[in-house]
Design a protein around this nucleic acid. Structure first.
Length: 547
RNA sequence: GGCCCGUUGGUGAAGCGGUCGAACACACAUGCCUUUCACGCAUGGAUUCAUGGGUUCAAAUCCCGUACGGGUCACCA
């Protein structure tokens, strides 16, 4: 029996050849950059995955290339329901619309599909069949137990672990012997018949890490699983990225050690390898230790975190870009309004070591961004977010939209606007007291003046003698000063106070704090004058009286 | 254990043999401004680039060893 006949025996139904597929999926136009995001639907999206997506997207879009989504569902045991929908949701939320994709049983876009691996079985089989026929792969009948024993012995003997050379028991079976076992119904996987020599080295260029010297692969890697009739990742990567004409593979650095395998696989078929960018791990500081950010332990590892907190997508993308290319910030300064895809992204500039995702930095980027927005934009964002995550507050802000916008506009329309919020969930905490419906103070943050009788005295005086609703800001403040001067031992002259603080009981600041706290229960707020103007006389009197 | 990658301040980092007396940004501290907070402005912090050797007139930058951190060695991706 020839290997060709063995191949026919193993895959009798497969009639298409790899040449057929080659024709079916022709090369894309010369020079097109093609990237892909290829997640396995096993749960929530991790910030590390998102990092890859951002890179995929800029690299493709910078050159008007193609960015597609491929669903790697070859491990059915680990598949989680709804995971694909969630991935699509995240891409949609961040406006990374893939040019080609496919939803199981639903819409599909692009002519290099199917884009779901479980629907590509026949394609993989054709490629496996070819390899068997060529004698470059073989059916392997080793059981899990046998392999465990080999591994154990290798470990004891301090020898390289894996199925290679003499450890590959089925490697030298003749086609007849193999055929006999198959006919007898024995379970088998398909392994690559590696021609590599571990003692030989080859040069490999990773776009992010630069040139590396690697040992050739000599392991007879499993490329086809017996249980599911599906290929392993390594083989699917080869077939899919070749046929889909991917030019740049951006993936986590945990794949780096598979390069020798992939290198041999591509060489075996004579296919051109795509370019690779292995992205660094996202790390996190945990006490004194720095460790890999973990989906289980760190809420910020999951992309849901940023949506739930209400970070603008702009800020999240900027933060990632800043980690990816450290010259990004400088570029952004010179191009404040350009889309991030205009940035000349360079894989070379990516740090090969792990990056610590800095939430402080995210907050800073976000605050700056939000501070530049108009009140209408802020309102729209806030409205959208609260609709999803805080219905009660959503109702409150919509009761009087103009009023809400006026609040959001305090100290906004000026050259250096306030930077109060980094995410939409921050807003309620800093403006709740502006709404009658929400204003139910639990305690008052009195400052230096905390004697209730004295406070009552000050407030009475203020309301009766100094408060005038129609005052402009200057007049308003002059009144507060006059109030201060009328009090025994207080001064409105800050300079004098600072020179001899011991000569006074307090100053204007202390007096305005009393008013501030009386009206808002907080000792820190934006401009008091603006707040009082918005609150209006009726509410001001009401709040002071109810004290 | 084998193989691979990495190690510059609190954080992200720039640096690619002399211009490094180590940029920039964030964070932090102090001060100024100021009715509070925030904003803004100013100032400060690495006697040194994990460490030990070597090459060189000259090293954070090149070479070797060591330590530490990480990844990987699945019919998981």
């Amino acid at each position: 029996m020839t290997t060709k006949e063995l191949a026919d025996l193993m895959f009798p139904d497969i009639t298409k050849t790899i040449e057929d597929y080659e024709k079916e999926y022709p090369e894309r136009p010369e020079g097109t950059v093609v990237t892909r995001y290829a997640p396995s639907p096993t749960g929530f999206m991790h910030i590390g995955n998102f990092y890859s997506v951002v890179c995929d997207y800029v690299i493709a879009k910078r050159s008007n290339g193609v960015f597609f989504l491929r669903n790697e569902d070859t491990d059915q045991a680990r598949e989680v329901e709804g995971a694909v929908e969630y991935i699509m949701h995240v891409l949609d939320h961040y406006e990374f619309h893939p040019d080609e994709y496919e939803i199981k049983g639903g819409e599909t876009k692009g002519s290099y599909g199917p884009y779901i691996q479980s629907e590509r079985k026949d394609i993989y089989k054709a490629f496996i069949k070819y390899l068997i026929a060529e004698g470059k792969a073989y059916p392997c009948f080793m059981t899990q137990e046998e392999m465990d024993v080999i591994r154990e012995n290798q470990s004891k003997a301090k020898v390289r672990i894996g199925i290679y050379g003499k450890f590959a028991k089925s490697r030298n079976l003749t086609p007849d012997e193999a055929a006999e076992k198959i006919k007898a119904g024995e379970q088998y996987t398909v392994r690559l018949k590696s021609e590599g020599n571990f003692n030989n080295k080859f040069k490999f260029n990773d776009l992010a890490n630069g040139e590396m010297d690697l040992h050739e692969n000599d392991i007879d890697t499993i490329i086809y699983k017996s249980s599911t009739e599906l290929p392993t990742y390594h083989f699917a990567h080869l077939v899919d990225d070749h046929l889909m004409r991917t030019t740049h593979v951006i993936r986590g650095q945990e794949w780096m050690s598979s390069i020798p395998t992939h290198y041999e696989l591509f060489k075996t078929f004579g296919f051109k390898m795509p370019k690779y960018v292995h992205t660094p791990l996202i790390l996190k500081k945990d006490g004194d230790k720095i460790r890999k950010i973990s989906k289980r332990l760190d809420p910020e590892a999951r992309m849901t975190y940023y949506e739930e907190k209400g970070y603008p997508i702009y800020a999240v993308i900027e933060a990632i870009m800043t980690i990816a290319n450290s010259n990004y910030e400088a570029w952004r300064e010179g191009h404040p309004d350009a889309p991030f895809t205009d940035f000349e992204f360079s894989a070379k500039k990516m740090s090969p070591s792990g990056a610590l995702f800095d939430l402080d930095k995210l907050d800073n980027i976000s605050k700056n961004y939000i501070s530049r927005l108009t009140k209408d934009q802020v309102f729209d964002f806030l409205n959208t977010w609260t609709k999803e995550y805080d219905e009660e507050f959503n109702a409150v802000i919509n009761k009087d939209v103009d009023y809400t916008k006026a609040i959001l506009n305090i100290e906004r329309e000026q050259k250096k606007p306030r930077k109060d919020y980094s995410c939409w969930s921050d807003v309620k905490n800093s403006i709740w007291y502006m709404y009658n419906d929400l204003y139910k103070p639990e305690s008052y943050a009195w400052g230096k003046i905390n004697d209730l009788n004295e406070i009552k005295d000050i407030l009475d005086k203020y309301i009766n003698n100094f408060y005038n609703e129609s005052d402009d800001k200057e007049a308003w403040f002059n009144h507060v000063k006059e109030l201060t001067e009328s009090l025994d031992g207080y001064t409105s002259d800050m300079k004098a106070y600072k020179e001899n603080p011991d000569n006074y009981k307090g100053n204007v600041a202390d007096v305005s704090t009393v008013i501030r706290v009386a009206l808002t229960s907080k000792d820190q707020t934006p401009d008091l004058y603006e707040i009082m103007k918005l609150l209006g006389k009726e509410e001001i009197v009401k709040r002071i009286n109810s004290l």
